[in-house]
Amino acid sequence: MEHQQTNFFVRGPSPLARLTFFAAVSLVLMVVDARLHYLGEVRQGFATLLHPLEIIATSPVRLYRSIQDHFTTVESLNQETQVLRDKTARLAVDLQRLPSLQAENDHLRQLLEARQAMQQPARMAEILHVSRDPFAQRIIVNLGSQQGVLAGQAAVDGAGVIGQVTRAYPFSSEITLITDRELAVPVQVERNGLRAIAFGHGRDNMLDLPYLPVNVDIHEGDKLVTSGIDGTYPVGLAVAIVKKVERNVDSPFAHIICVPTAGTDRHRQVLILTTMPSAAIPLDEPHPLPKKKESRHHAPR
């Protein structure tokens, strides 16, 4: 204790002064980051510096997975082959019909003088890790702006939409899942073409369809697909299945809960559609859909 006494009085500014200073700096940084978005490049720079650390930190899990993959039994591989073969056979049948359908669709679009739907190039990305923040539904994947991934691009898997790239770092990028509270997906009910906006639920693996009237024509089991109105997602990708519709007399809106079709919390790989999100593309005007009035795009949350 005698030794420590020498340090007793040389402690610099008082703790309260330090607290005030650093708390103020933190608050200013938070406001600048949240409201003014000035710090994007700073974040990118530091994220590049932290990237090697991230690789090291995720390496134990990758090692475990590779060992697991290595020791897969012949039986399970056989099973998987069987499943994949079945799937290929079923898809092949559908695929045979696709060229003729596409030709027909092109022809119809020409008749309508509508813009041709374009092919979507995609890249396979592997999930590095999920978000460390228990409040957010995000994943980090191993493709970044160096590989042509840009913020705003859509991420999908075999079963439907997963989410959207919200931040692209040089060697990795952050995908916000459709189940996150901050992400909205413009959708359409496949059965009747009704348009709506799906919001993430935040905590559990669910989606909400808010701001739809009580008498809206949606049933349990209805499939929601992307409407393509935002220019981010291509038209017709599966998003969710309606799980529950509650119509309360005391609320002007129906309470609709949906489950995403894509494995937002299951897969190791995702597809990133690498066309630039094209906000400038004019919408196809003649839309042969029911003329039901939809809720506003950016309804306040």
Partner: peptide, 29 residues
């Protein structure tokens, strides 16, 4: 000291992709 706490909080914010300053403030207090 408190400055170290703030600095580590900033690193955690960066690593987690959170808003800058959240963990920094949460550690400083």
């Amino acid at each position: 000291n408190i400055g170290t706490a703030w600095f580590m909080g900033m690193l955690v914010d960066l690593a987690g992709g959170d808003l800058f300053g959240q963990h920094a403030l949460a550690y400083v207090v």
